Amino acid sequence: MLEHGGNLRDAALRFGRDDWLDLSTGINPHWYPAPALPGNAWHRLPEADPELALAAAAYYGAPLMLPVAGTQAAIQALPRLRMPSRVTVAAPSYAEHAHHWNDHGHTLTQTSYEALGAAVANSDVMVICNPNNPTGASVPAAQLLQWADQLAARGGWLVVDEAFGDTAQHNSIAAHSGRPGLIVLRSVGKFFGLAGIRLGFVAAHADLLRDLADLLGPWAVSGPAQHIALAALRDRTWQEHTLDQLLASGERLHQLLAAHDIHSAGTALFQWWSEERAEAFWQHMAERGIWVRLFKQAARGIRLGLPPDEEGWQRLETALNEWTNKEHT
């Protein structure tokens, strides 16, 4: 399996402590307060609740949406719905996309965000995280729709992973996902802080959603996950408050890093920067009980999520002060 953030068991085994400040994911640390479950929630088979798909379509602004067991389920399944194709995956990005498109007879190319426009002509499928994980880079919606039209004209797909799109909804293309060849992935885990319920949505043309549902099979999403998500997707008051809170916290994190001469970019949920001494920074933080995401490959750098409380912010600031002092001695 590929490495991901949130692996606190690994942190505890390696560094022998249990007081971790986990900044290794881009998940909202203030999760949606899950409502009480019906008494039979764990007894009944999880029939698909049509109200959930309707609530998701209203929240994300899409014509049709299919609930799936986290966007990971769709990422693994989509490559199985096409004959061998020329696939371009934007890089660096969420590694599971390239990992799964590399199978099933496809020819994979990983291309920088700057070179995506030139890659359209030689691709049958393009996969883009927007905004990107881990760098926060984004492509304007108008540009994505132009590429989608070019690909669809020859039977191709544009897959846009908007898992971190809730705080940048103005740049979402979910509203256009009814057209053939455009597939948009959305996640409940990031903005709502509900990664544990394993729920995401796919917005696409009805024919593709039908094929995907057939491939994933019955009972794809648990009953408790459906119940909790339905409440979260309908709770406009919580959503508006949380959006304001995350935008302020994201800017606070950006400014905190800038005060330590770290020039970062990202979203309201995380910051990322290229770091020459990435392993040393990761080690420095881990020794202080702060778990950050280390990227070792071509995108050599660090990603930081949001602290959950003021004590966490102070812990992070102290560790950054010590890092800066160490670097300047």
Rank of each mutant, 00 (worst) to 15 (best):
T109N: 13
L66E: 06
N130V: 03
A220K: 10
F164D: 01
L66D: 02
A231G: 12
A95D: 08
A41I: 05
G266W: 02
D211C: 14
W42D: 15
A141L: 05
L215Y: 09
Q169E: 14
L23E: 05
L199H: 04
R210C: 13
A55W: 06
D309F: 07
E275W: 07
A69W: 05
Y59L: 06
Q146Y: 09
L66W: 04
L269D: 02
M1I: 15
G26L: 01
A91D: 04
G26Y: 00
L253I: 00
H43I: 15
D124C: 07
L256A: 04
A34E: 15
R86H: 08
E114I: 07
R82C: 08
A231T: 11
R86Y: 04
A203G: 11
G26V: 00
A36G: 15
M83L: 14
A57M: 03
N133R: 09
N102A: 12
E240S: 10
Q169L: 12
G250P: 01
Y113C: 02
R17D: 03
A56T: 01
V125A: 06
Q146C: 09
L209D: 00
G223C: 11
S222I: 03
T329M: 12
L8V: 15
W157C: 02
L2C: 14
A34I: 15
V87Y: 00
H284N: 07
W313P: 05
P140Y: 06
H205T: 11
P92K: 01
L144T: 05
L182S: 00
Q76R: 11
N40L: 15
I262T: 07
T109V: 14
S24C: 03
L21T: 06
Q271R: 12
H43W: 15
W20N: 06
A98T: 05
V87R: 00
F15I: 10
T324M: 03
R186H: 04
Q226E: 01
R17S: 05
G223F: 12
L246S: 01
R288K: 13
N102E: 13
Q143E: 10
G196P: 04
G217Y: 10
Y32T: 13
H100T: 09
D19G: 07
G117S: 09
